[in-house]
Simulated scan of single mutants.
Amino acid sequence: MRFNPKARLDTRRVRDSGRSGGGGSRMPGGGGRLPIPGGAAAGGGLGGLLVIVLVIVVMQFMGGGGGGAPTASDDLDLSRVQGDDSQRYASCETGADANQDVDCARVAVENSLTAYWSDTLPEQADADFRPEQVMATFTGAVSTGCGQATSDVGPFYCPPDEGIYLDTTFFEDVLQQGLGGPAGAFVEPYVLAHEYGHHIQNVLGTMGRVRTQQGPESDAVRLELQADCYAGMWTGSATTATDEQGEAFISELSQTDIDQAIAAAKAVGDDRIQDRTTGRVNPAEWTHGSAEQRQRWFKVGYEQGSLEACDTFATDTL
């Protein structure tokens, strides 16, 4: 993956909360932890790290009823994430910076996702788009609209404050070392695109359709597979998303990049996680979908590029 050196980066929605010590990974008052398939222990070692993989914290926010996302006119309470910014991204100005610095690459990916969905959502869904409120990195722990979260949580989207959060050590410590997932420049963009997919679901109100939480055909699995499909949609058109001057953020995306995303999707399949952490596979406990399902739905989005093709709630074949 290469970024266009001429692209101008916008850091307004990307921030870093720095290092925060202490605090548990429980998310009270608006979020909840989804355990690793198979019930990995929350103690030390691998089980302690793999509390959540690519989690979405939705259910308590929805209040058990229809629920719904905040509308564009709602006042979102971002006070919990508006603390001191470490200025980690202050020097990220152009695509040239993104080619030299992994932090600036993260900004460029966020900008590309925002640009892509700002065009795609109104075109395909006749819906008003709004960007996520914040894409925040942290070290140790972070306070969000879904409560307190530690690095154990992994990357997640928080609906109440419309924020995406991640400790970047996840990719090496958990995805690569713990789950045997791939290394490579496009692994993190796939994860960020998946979480941005949850934001699109929030905007469209899809989260309110989730009733069943576990099982191979549960609503929770359908939601996650749809987010993978949305990630594939962006990937297929990533080189066409442009800044305000019409400069593409990403100038080159190779087959190797696509293969890395597919390998990452495979690594975080429920069956793969269960097998690596407990030695058994129990589909009744799935919350995100199997390795095969996650790869397949990413490919559907990549190849077909439409919200309609990504409607996992409309099919009997997941």
Rank of each mutant, 00 (worst) to 15 (best):
P189I: 09
V191A: 11
V210S: 02
Y196H: 07
L192F: 08
Y190Q: 10
T206P: 00
H198R: 10
G215V: 05
Q214E: 09
S218A: 14
T206H: 12
A193Q: 07
G197N: 09
S218P: 07
Q201M: 09
Q213K: 10
T206W: 13
N202H: 13
Q201D: 06
P216C: 11
R222L: 12
M207A: 09
Q201T: 12
H199E: 13
L192W: 04
Y196P: 01
V203A: 01
E217V: 08
I200G: 00
R222Q: 14
H198S: 08
P189L: 12
G205W: 00
V221H: 00
S218M: 02
Y196I: 06
D219N: 14
N202S: 13
Q214K: 09
R222S: 07
R209W: 06
H194L: 08
G197P: 08
P216G: 11
R211E: 13
G208F: 08
Y190K: 03
G208S: 15
P216L: 04
E217K: 14
L204D: 10
V203M: 08
G208N: 09
Q214C: 09
V191Y: 00
R222N: 10
G205L: 06
L204N: 09
G208V: 07
V210E: 00
G197K: 03
L192A: 10
T212R: 11
T206Q: 13
V210A: 06
H199W: 10
G208W: 04
E195Y: 02
F186R: 01
D219E: 05
G205C: 10
Y196T: 15
V221Y: 03
Q214A: 13
Y196D: 04
L192P: 01
Q213G: 03
A193K: 03
A193P: 01
H199Y: 14
D219G: 14
Q213M: 15
V191L: 05
Q213T: 14
V191E: 02
E195C: 08
L192T: 12
G208L: 04
V203L: 15
V210Q: 05
H194G: 04
R209M: 11
G208I: 07
L204W: 06
G197S: 13
H199T: 15
A193V: 07
E188T: 15
V210M: 11
E195I: 06
I200W: 01
R209Q: 11
V187H: 00
T212G: 13
V221G: 03
A220Y: 01
R209N: 12
V187I: 12
P189K: 07
Q201V: 11
F186V: 02
M207I: 15
V221R: 03
A220Q: 10
L192G: 02
V210H: 00
V203K: 00
H199N: 10
H194D: 05
R209G: 04
L192I: 15
P189H: 11
R211I: 03
Q214W: 15
T212P: 09
H198P: 01
L192K: 08
V187L: 13
V187D: 02
H194M: 11
E195Q: 14
A220R: 07
P216V: 06
V187C: 08
E195P: 02
Q201E: 14
